[in-house]
Structure formats: structure tokens, C-alpha cells
Amino acid sequence: MAEKTLDQAKLKAFENAAAGHDGVLSDESGEMIIKPCTDHEIAFYQESLHHHPKFYELMPLFMGTLQLGAPANVPDVTAPSEPADLTQDQKDKQLLHGQKIATETAIVLENLEHGFKKPNVLDLKLGALLYDPEQTKPEKAERLDKVAAETTSGSLNFRIAGMKVWNGKDYDVYDKFYGRKFNKDNIKDGFATFFSSLGAASRPDDARELLETILAEITKARHSLERSESRMYSASVLIVYEGDADALDTLMGNPPKTPRVDERAPTNFEIKKSQEEEDEDEEQPPVTHRVKMIDFAHAAWTPGKGRDENVIKGLKNVEDQMDVLIARFE
């Protein structure tokens, strides 16, 4: 695959995120996203790439960094200033994707939605503790504890942070407030909504196999973390699958083999090497789905501190919800 270059004059606001912060850009092709970030997050990507290759397989492909500066030709996607008399709830509703990070440094990553005709996207924020106790001011910690206590973050160690689902004509978009309304007993309804187009578009056997494949990749992420020592506050697992019924049906005509729980999926490097051997300029072939860990602004490898039970428990409970869905197709 030929090396890609970025022309800052052609960067545009990335408007397809299911959740996350404002200020994210994409390149003209849509293959890459440019996400404002801290030096800490860049360091985590670099350390994962060089020292934790098994986990790096579960992350978006890291393509380097970019200094955005403030050139006139880069889109201004900063949120408008807010009146001082708004309540916090009103501010939240005005800025559903969180405030833009105050930095001129951006990380360049593969766009996980690229290559799908109509990507359905689910962002699941992991953990009951959503902040680093050693780095967070008391007032912010109190606010995040309240969010966790009132949502499935507290009861299940994960919650729906946002999702979008293609309904055949346009997208149904579900913001972070949608995810906050669920409890541990009805969260299955959120998963059913996200995968509703799968049930409508696919034969039961195909739908079950795709769900089992997605489940296996979530389990792979959990197993990787169980073998590691880390802390990943407010990280997410992102699930993407093809929402276009015809495209999915075509892809499922030769469905991927469901891997065993411990079977290693090919790395990004292996996939790209295979593509290069076939055709240097050939684009990545379409896929039925992607499952990746994302959002590492508050993530670190922490030797000596043990595994991250906060996130591991969340992944286990996500697996349980996938099992509930799969049972519907048996």
C-alpha cells in the first residue's frame, strides 16, 4: 500500500463518530482520522507498538502525529462559547461529544469506519471507575462517580457511550444520554437495537456466526488485558459492522471462520503485508466488522500493579450481553 501523505488544507471535520470529543478531523479520502491528543496518549500508542504487540493488534493502526498549529485553512471545529448561566445538563446537551482538547498536537489513526458502505457503530465505555484517582481533581471525580452510580458503568463496568444504526434510509443516532438511561436488567435492549439491522438483513446462521466472531474478538481483548498490567481509565471498545443489507449479504456469502477464543487474529502488519504482495496500490478489501479498543488519553502500562480488573469486568459483562443476543438466533 502506497504511503499516504496529509494535506492540511484538505482536512475536514470528522462527523461520523458515535461518541468522543469534538475537534476530530479526517483526511480527504476518509481513511485516516486526526485526533487532538495529549503527549500521554501518544506515548501509550508508541509503547504499545514497541513493547505490547499483542495488545497493539487490538488498537487502531497508529500512523504518527501531526502538528495542527492554527493555520487558516484547517477547519475550526471548536464548540461555540457557552452562556455562563447554563446548567451543567444544558451544557452537556449542547456539546454531546465533550469539549475539544486544548492541544495543537494530533494523533493520526486509521478510520475504523472506512471501507464499510454503511457502518453501524457502537462505542462502549469501559470501567466503573472512570478516572485516574492520582490525576483527577476532586470536583471532576465526584461528577464522574455520580455518572457511574446512575448508569451501568457502576453496575456492569460498561455503558453505551453512543451508537449509530443504519435503518435502510438514514442513520438513527443515539447519543451519550441514550446510554445513560439503561440499567443492568434492560441494557440488553440497547444491544438488540444496535444489532437490529443484522437480524433483518441476514439469515439466522449468518447472523449468529457474525455475532460469535465479534464476541471472540471481545474475548481476545479481555484475555490480552488479563495477561497484562495496566490501567485504562475511560477507554472504550468500539464495534463496527456493515449496516447495508445488500453489502452484508454479499460479504456473508463467504463468511469469516469464527476463531476459537485463543486463536490469534492476523495483525495489522500481516494484513497490510498480504495486501502489498497482491497489489501495492490495492485498497483494503471490505469486511463485515471491526472490533477495537480505543480512547487511551488516561491509559498506562503499570508494571507491578496487577491487571486492570476495572476494565476486565466490563469486557466480561459485554461478552454476557453478546451471549444473550446469540441465543436469539439458535
Score class of each variant (00 low, 15 high):
243 G>D: 01
135 Q>R: 14
76 D>F: 01
186 N>M: 08
186 N>C: 06
151 T>E: 02
164 K>L: 12
138 P>R: 06
157 N>K: 09
80 P>S: 13
29 S>H: 06
72 A>E: 11
98 G>A: 13
176 K>W: 00
139 E>V: 00
7 D>Y: 07
29 S>T: 13
282 E>L: 15
144 L>W: 09
72 A>R: 15
62 F>Q: 15
225 L>S: 01
318 V>R: 05
62 F>R: 15
143 R>N: 09
177 F>P: 01
257 K>I: 06
84 A>S: 13
240 V>F: 12
287 V>H: 03
237 V>W: 09
298 H>K: 14
215 L>Y: 01
184 K>H: 11
59 M>F: 10
279 D>S: 04
115 G>S: 07
79 A>S: 07
217 E>K: 12
25 L>G: 03
119 P>R: 03
233 Y>K: 10
296 F>E: 01
218 I>G: 00
22 D>I: 03
51 H>W: 04
189 D>L: 15
16 N>Q: 09
236 S>N: 08
230 S>A: 14
23 G>N: 08
126 L>P: 01
81 S>E: 14
178 Y>L: 02
55 F>Q: 12
78 T>C: 02
250 T>D: 11
281 D>V: 03
149 A>F: 12
79 A>D: 10
308 D>F: 09
219 T>N: 11
195 F>D: 05
6 L>W: 12
250 T>L: 08
115 G>T: 02
184 K>R: 13
279 D>F: 14
79 A>C: 10
257 K>C: 12
322 M>Q: 08
69 G>I: 04
270 E>A: 13
115 G>M: 03
183 N>A: 05
172 D>L: 07
151 T>W: 03
264 R>K: 12
169 K>H: 10
94 Q>D: 05
314 G>E: 13
15 E>G: 12
201 A>T: 00
319 E>Y: 10
64 G>A: 13
307 R>C: 09
49 L>F: 04
283 E>M: 10
13 A>Y: 06
312 I>V: 15
172 D>S: 12
89 D>A: 10
251 L>M: 13
35 K>Y: 08
17 A>C: 04
328 R>Y: 04
80 P>T: 12
296 F>C: 02
41 E>V: 11
231 R>S: 13
76 D>P: 00
112 L>D: 03
256 P>Q: 07
269 F>Q: 10
285 P>Y: 02
191 F>M: 11
189 D>F: 12
51 H>Q: 14
145 D>A: 08
50 H>W: 07
290 R>Y: 00
295 D>Y: 06
73 N>R: 11
196 S>V: 02
8 Q>F: 00
312 I>K: 01
16 N>H: 11
118 K>F: 00
213 T>N: 05
206 D>T: 02
118 K>G: 01
90 Q>N: 04
99 Q>Y: 12
263 E>S: 08
305 K>R: 13
137 K>A: 13
289 H>W: 03
296 F>K: 05
208 R>F: 00
61 L>K: 11
19 A>L: 09
2 A>M: 14
123 D>H: 05
98 G>L: 03
